[in-house]
Amino acid sequence: MLKKRVIAVLVVSNNIVVQSKGFNKYLPVGSPEISAEAFNNWGIDELFLIDINASKEKRLINLDLVKKVASKCLVPLTVSGGIKNIQEIGQLFKVGADKVCVNNSIKNNQNILFEGKKKFGRQCMVASIDSLNIDNNFKVFDYFSGKVTKKCVFDTAIKYEEAGAGEIFINDVSRDGSYKGYDIKLANLLCKKVSIPIISCGGAGKPEHIVNILKKSNVSGAAAANYFHFYEHSIAVTKAYVNKFIQIRQDTALLYSKMPIDNNGRIGRLSDYELEEYLYEKMKVEVI
């Protein structure tokens, strides 16, 4: 069975991972390389690396940075930031990207999706849409100008699929950094409109939110940025919690499946009896 994905997003500004809130406030978190390495060790299913300034500064994401992050990455890496043509997509693949994600360069003209599909295949072209919920009308938000447009999110998604997108990354601006949970209604409406995989992003604040979006909608993945950065083994703990409700991939060496975890993602204490058992358990080190 195909498992739904838990995806971590590294939002990068000036080559530093930042915490983003409502698309306008940013706090520094740390080095992208170290985040990528930790997330890999903690069992993430996929990584997104997004440079939020690249398009505005009319340049491509730093190739050296992509190369460094890719070298730490044993899971798929999707790269986004300032991509304008298929030559640049080729450059990104050369430095270790597995997929690319485009947003600003397709808002008026989807040619890059069409050409990318022809040259690299649909499966490595991800189209990203920033959505803003205005009284249950989902409109495309243009982060470039910081304004909401008149375009309908669903029509835009259909257009992107027709042009050659292999996945849609839907980012809910109204919930970005809010820790309120994902917009399940948006996800469900979108899944009905397109036949390619959807990744939901924006609003994750606790493991329960990820369970809700994965269980109550047909999205293929739940992405989160801020939420994963601030505690040790965040991904392993989150995935162990989520796995109790919906089966996801649990292949990491860090197994929290036997631990009591509450819906805020806090680990409880094992009983004295169980702790004693662990005391004498010999762990075998695997050499691959």
Binding site: L2, Q123, G166, S195, P197, I198
Partner: peptide
């Protein structure tokens, strides 16, 4: 062959 409303491409972790 996309049956049962399964999205294509087949993307993700499968057993």
């Amino acid at each position: 062959n996309a049956k049962k409303n399964l999205p294509v491409p087949h993307v993700g972790w499968n057993e």
